[in-house]
Design a protein around this nucleic acid. Sequence first.
DNA 1: CAATCATTTCCATTATTCCTGAATTATGGA
DNA 2: TCCATAATTCAGGAATAATGGAAATGATTG
Lengths: 111, 111
Amino acid sequence: MEMNHALDSLSALAHEGRLQVFRLLVRAGPEGMAAGEIATALQFRANTLSNHLNILAASGLVRALREGRSIRYFAEMQTMRGLLGFLMEDCCGGNAALCQPLLDQIACDCT
Amino acid sequence: MEMNHALDSLSALAHEGRLQVFRLLVRAGPEGMAAGEIATALQFRANTLSNHLNILAASGLVRALREGRSIRYFAEMQTMRGLLGFLMEDCCGGNAALCQPLLDQIACDCT
DNA sequence: CAATCATTTCCATTATTCCTGAATTATGGA
DNA sequence: TCCATAATTCAGGAATAATGGAAATGATTG
């Protein structure tokens, strides 16, 4: 991941509403949730939520899939992993061997 | 970690300058860097950098230690780890057993 | 104590982000 | 086709954050 993508992802998460949405989708796992379900669960107005979902999707943290008249959203663990790798890059001045193997494992197996 | 702390950390990182600072400190490892060194390395004005460092420190992502007339800063891996745990909490609807052991290992051994 | 260096604080300006209401697109069913 | 439902887009004003100059604080040296 490069700087701009990381910034998009971090900015997307640096907002209470969007962070709630993302964590809800993480909990939902591979089943994901429809936009309407999310709105109900978190008590958000439809347009506000749509905006949040757009921002999350643009950063790659969330994926959208139309399903009938609903649109279902999923958390993208791979993006999360990439972000973390970026944050930890060259950890400890090149002794990355200590950290990298751990980072490589960060991904939810159930996704 | 609870919501507000996570938001502080994410907002702190969701800024190009601060993200550069944090990553620089991650690379610097346990030796850390003096504010002046950081300013030189990244070409930041002293006051701008000071502001960034304050924000990072307030979120716990960075720790300050006065050393003579300089102030030395260090990346706090533990905070990073807490943040990640928060983001992945209850991953996949309770099957956290799949993710949690991995998350528990995320910490730079050299810190 | 005076001088100097490192960093921070204060303040005003500029830029960005956020929320809301109203209008719009897209899908499925009668 | 007409209607209802699901979700998105757009424009605005309000709130918030970022920047840079100037002054102030804190620590060391002579």
